[in-house]
């Protein structure tokens, strides 16, 4: 017993340093694989538009700030549990001879796909745009809703 432990000591033996590094890498890979890929993803993905998603018992709510974008310029499509938002933000040049002092607002097209953690009842999805904020209400499919199971008392 004592001898075996002596031989297994990390500093002992003819292992090359590279072999030791490879072992550490395998170990790290294993650790990272074990980290569960959990929802929610708290970090912004860097895709326009910035989106907030919330849920309650019955629905998911998706909100995105799209100031100056008309409802007709936004396309929303839903399949199963993913939603795709695409569109274009237009800024119309109003006059020909203008001098710009500030130009911070940007125009352009956007496309974003978001996967939701449960199935959606695609027939009941509602979308509205007010004050430059797009809100999409996505009702959860019946099978995805939490169910309370009463416990019978005998």
């Amino acid at each position: 017993m004592i001898i075996r432990r002596y031989f297994d000591a990390p500093t002992w033996g003819w292992k090359s340093p590279f072999e030791e590094l490879a072992r550490m890498r395998r170990e790290l890979d294993r650790v990272f694989e074990e980290v569960p890929r959990t929802w929610p993803v708290e970090l912004p993905t860097g895709v326009f538009p910035l989106t907030n998603i919330t849920e309650d018992k019955d629905n998911f709510y998706l909100r995105a700030e799209l100031p100056g974008t008309k409802a007709s310029d936004v396309d929303i499509s839903i399949t199963g549990n993913s939603i795709s938002i695409s569109g274009e933000r237009k800024i119309i040049a109003e006059h020909k001879n203008v001098k710009y002092h500030r130009r911070e607002r940007e125009a352009g097209s956007f496309r974003r796909m978001i996967k939701l953690p449960a199935q959606i009842d695609t027939s009941k999805v509602e979308a509205k745009s007010s004050d430059g904020v797009l809100t999409v209400i996505l009702p959860k499919a019946e099978i995805a809703k939490p169910k309370q199971i009463p416990i019978k008392v005998s």
Binding site: P40, V41, T45, T51, N52, T54, E55, D56, Y61, R63
Partner: peptide
């Protein structure tokens, strides 16, 4: 957001 909504993603 409504009061009983839970945040899943906040960008």
């Amino acid at each position: 957001e409504g009061s009983d909504e839970v945040v899943l993603l906040r960008e």
